[in-house]
């Protein structure tokens, strides 16, 4: 377990590399998903206003 945390003395490089990658990719996924949900909600709003779903 200790080896896992210290990464053979390279914890200062290994963990930031994984942390930055995880953070950036999660943020990217969240950004893409929220844009999708927003676009979907907006279309639904316009369609209901038009009174005829397509």
């Amino acid at each position: 377990m200790n080896d896992f945390i210290t990464q053979g003395g390279y914890a200062g490089y290994v963990w930031p590399a994984y942390a930055i990658t995880a953070l950036a990719l999660s943020a990217l996924a969240a950004w893409a998903l929220s844009a999708y949900r927003k676009a979907k909600a907006e279309l639904a709003r316009i369609e209901s206003k038009e009174g005829r779903p397509s």
Binding site: A29, A32, Y36, A39, K40, L43, I46, E50
Partner: peptide, 27 residues
Amino acid sequence: LLFLLLWLIRIRTAVLKRRTWNLMLRA
């Protein structure tokens, strides 16, 4: 796979936006 997934979601988002835009124009 993650890239393909997010790519697909973003293309779908753009298509939805275009549809919304067209409806608004028509309105």
